[in-house]
Write a protein that binds this DNA or RNA. Structure first.
Lengths: 192, 192
DNA sequence: CTGATTTCTTAACCTGAGTTAATGCCCACC
DNA sequence: GGTGGGCATTAACTCAGGTTAAGAAATCAG
């Protein structure tokens, strides 16, 4: 149930058995169906989500267009940090792209952990740092690369995405429309 | 010299006088001229920078084009987290847009602080969280808004930028070219 | 197995922004 | 007080990507 999350945590923090138990006592597991929403725009994000199995994506809804921010597969954390940290309504929507099992950690519990076991602050810091690095990657890709470069880069760096995610979500992740992704694929296929 | 940084720190962490002194002992001040580079692409970013006075901007160099990521004014922290955290050569360039005074905090010293005074982990966490929020704002703006919306939003949210930063840097920050920003300004002026 | 739905591709047309280059303005500095 | 360099604007042209719509292909549910 929590082996994955505990194993990952063990790589960050050395913990005593009772600390592990204390941590586990804060966790809850949730099964979600394909296409089920985990978080909706307007909700206040009060949890961090860890993917045990399956796949989540978050997206923005802009003028009826879905704008995919990121995909999260097994052993990855997701949270809408902005809503989570500032207590503001989220602008993000999160849905399961597959039947998934996710672990929930409430913000209030995590903050209590920071107090009860101060070394968990390090966990909090590393979560935030990793969230930053993930966003930075995405953001740099959108600013500094052309659509074609972004596509090629994604194939190279995360080929798994293409095996598990429909192409129109990938287009949206790359910041383009499905016809545009098709054009890029066609262009590349011809020039080879 | 360090009043600003200590004052800000005081809002995050309650500290004893000796802890403040310990922290201050890690800091160094640097004066930089207008247009002077603080960090260059390829360097490994080993410090966090706090702006006491003046203004920094960081940018990417992509095919000879400068791609501005952010401006930092007084009382803001900058670091290239990716290079800083992973020890990789930075892809960013940082220059002073005005004669500036900046405070440097070395990564190695900060990590020693985490060990010496564990509650500094909280400072580290909040730094990372704030870096995330800043990037998230920028990133969301680029993904979800048109160039015109980004321009109007910047005027509304950070009018100071227009008073202190040449327009071609603002264009680059908005993700467009100077002629394009001129067109937007013209369009807006006409439709009013 | 079959009809329905989702997904992908293609075509035609449109548009916002890039590119390049010319012009004029401003102001910093000699 | 001139002058040279940096900066903003404008024009003309190009093009990547958006938009819309239609059709083909794949996938799913009953």
């Amino acid at each position: 149930m929590f082996e994955q999350i505990i194993s990952q945590l063990g790589h960050i923090l050395p913990l005593h058995e009772e600390e592990v138990q204390h941590f586990i006592s804060k966790l809850q597991v949730k099964q979600v169906d394909k296409k089920e929403m985990v978080l909706q725009e307007g909700d206040i994000c009060k949890h961090a989500y860890f993917v045990n199995k399956g796949c989540l994506r978050y997206f923005y809804n802009v003028d009826g267009q879905e704008n995919t921010g990121q995909f999260f597969f097994e052993n990855n954390w997701y949270t809408d940090y902005e809503s989570y940290l500032l207590g503001k309504p989220s602008k993000q929507n999160v849905e399961a792209l597959e039947k998934s099992e996710i672990v929930l950690l409430a913000k209030s519990d995590l903050h209590q952990l920071f107090v009860d076991i101060p070394k968990f602050e390090k966990f909090g810091r590393i979560m935030a740092e990793n969230a930053f690095l993930g966003l930075r990657n995405k953001s740099e890709m959108l600013t500094n690369q052309t659509a074609e470069e972004r596509y090629l880069n994604l194939i190279k760096e995360r080929p798994k995405v293409f095996e598990r995610v429909p192409q129109h979500y990938i287009a949206s992740y790359l910041g383009i429309q499905p016809p545009s992704l098709s054009r890029i694929r066609k262009r590349l296929a011809e020039s080879r």
